[in-house]
């Protein structure tokens, strides 16, 4: 009896999305379109570049990294950060795509 009650309860939980939305406007799964993916990757690259620069500054300030090593790397990191920011601006300026259609397949 308790087993049957448990079975009924889980069936309701599993069926909940269909019970709540018997006839939805769209049943399509939200997937990232190409523009969104590019934007996400650009944001990750930006965060990576800025974090690297910040860490280098902190390491140098704390004396973990010598002046010589600092000078050898800081220019490269600054260029990377500027490039990442430029790329993010470029991607952000692009028009956003919509949700993918139901027939479309993910990569």
């Amino acid at each position: 009896m308790l087993g049957a009650a448990l079975a009924v309860a889980v069936v309701v939980v599993v069926a909940l999305p269909f019970l709540r939305e018997p006839t939805p406007d769209s049943d399509a799964l939200h997937e990232l379109d190409a523009a969104e993916r590019e934007r996400l990757e650009a944001e990750e690259a930006r965060d990576r570049a800025l974090a690297a620069l910040k860490e280098l500054e902190a390491d140098h300030r704390a004396g973990r990294i010598s002046d010589e090593d600092y000078r050898a790397v800081v220019g490269v990191l600054r260029r990377d950060a500027a490039e990442a920011l430029r790329e993010l601006d470029r991607v952000r300026a692009m028009p956003r795509g919509g949700t993918r259609t139901e027939s479309a397949k993910s990569a």
């Binding site: 049943d27 939200h30 993918r100």
Partner: peptide, 20 residues
């Protein structure tokens, strides 16, 4: 199936099953 066919409610239902 939900992931391959892009079915939102089916994906939520599968997730609910995993939680249940």
């Amino acid at each position: 199936a939900a992931a391959a066919l892009g079915r939102r409610r089916l994906a939520l239902s599968a997730r609910n099953a995993l939680i249940a």
